[in-house]
């Protein structure tokens, strides 16, 4: 049971990281990134291939972060004039291109067979459940660092410009803000967090293949951001946990209702997830938490 919980917590952390990135890109800056799973895949493969080539885990993760930062900045740059739905399509196309690359460039990525045997960091230090717990600890640290990173950006004047851009980019540019520069940097900052998420994913599973990086990754990330309250990093954490509780908790339906066969239980599970989302959108459309707003009237500036 502890092993299962540890695994679930690591999943939650990885999906919370992706959610944090999306919360910066879409939640705050208003840039729809449907292709987030493509960036996630790039990060995972860069980390995996570097680690397999003998690069230390930390450096491999750093390479993954650099790769996603550069790619995110490039995608934001070339789609500079696209907004909302068009950007969504462009990012989706990017993710599809990544998927096809991973499937077909077998010499590098192993194609549909994926990459087995990715060396896990610090695997000499502990083994079995102890290793799992240690990996959980590392993941918590990574999440904490990324959360602080995102939160510092949210409360800074940088975050203020992002929210302004989301609301009305013509106003922001009339007030002297270079919209392109902010968009590119917001997208790249989100990319950095995705880089960390992809690295954790590779190291934890030690086996990756293209099916792990499907559109469902994007769907869960959007669910977490919407449930948490668009723009709020704290809300995002709550959202990511809720989504995972819903997804994983419904697995136990079969035990609670032994009269259902496996097929019925699986269908009921999907129905419950859908109902949960609809209820949330009806009763709490703004999400669990409100996004950050400066409250400075009493002289408190931070």
């Amino acid at each position: 049971m502890i092993g299962y919980l540890t695994a679930i917590l690591i999943f939650v952390i990885i999906s919370a990281l992706i959610g944090l990135a999306l919360n910066l890109q879409w939640g705050q800056a208003g840039m729809v990134n449907f292709g987030i799973f493509g960036f996630f895949a790039v990060a995972a493969y860069v980390a995996a291939l570097s680690a397999m080539a003998g690069v230390p885990a930390l450096v491999a993760a750093l390479l993954a972060v650099i790769a996603t930062v550069i790619l995110s900045a490039l995608v934001a740059l070339v789609s500079a004039r696209l907004r909302e739905d068009y950007l969504a399509i462009a990012t989706l196309a990017f993710a599809e291109a990544v998927r096809l690359f991973l499937l077909n460039e077998t010499w590098l990525t192993g194609g549909a067979n994926g990459l087995p045997g990715i060396p896990r960091p610090l695997s000499g230090v502990a083994s079995g459940l102890h290793y799992e717990l240690m990996f959980l600890g590392i993941s918590v640290v990574v999440l904490a660092l990324c959360f602080v990173f995102a939160q510092l950006l949210t409360v800074s004047p940088f975050g203020r410009v992002l929210r302004a851009l989301r609301e009305d980019d013509l106003v922001a540019s009339t007030l002297g803000k270079t919209t392109l520069s902010f968009r590119v940097r917001a997208f790249a900052a989100g990319g950095a967090i995705i880089g960390a998420a992809g690295s954790l994913h590779s190291f934890y599973f030690s086996y990756i293949d293209p099916t792990q990086f499907g559109a469902f990754v994007t769907a869960y990330a959007f669910m977490a951001v919407i449930a948490g309250g668009r723009g709020s990093n704290t809300g995002l954490l709550i959202g990511a946990v809720s989504v995972m509780v819903l997804l994983e908790g419904t697995r136990f339906l079969k035990d609670l209702m032994p009269f259902l066969d496996a097929g019925q239980a699986a269908s009921l599970r999907l129905i419950l997830i859908g109902v949960g989302l609809i209820l949330l959108l009806i009763y709490r459309p703004q999400g669990f938490m409100r996004e950050y707003r400066l409250q400075a009237k009493d002289g408190d500036v931070s």
């Binding site: 203020r160 989301r166 609301e167 922001a172 007030l175 803000k177 707003r293 400066l294």
Partner: peptide, 15 residues
């Protein structure tokens, strides 16, 4: 074109 996601003060600080 007010920026409704920002407070009144933030609207000014932004500029």
């Amino acid at each position: 074109r007010d920026l409704g996601a920002l407070t009144i003060l933030e609207n000014l600080l932004l500029a």
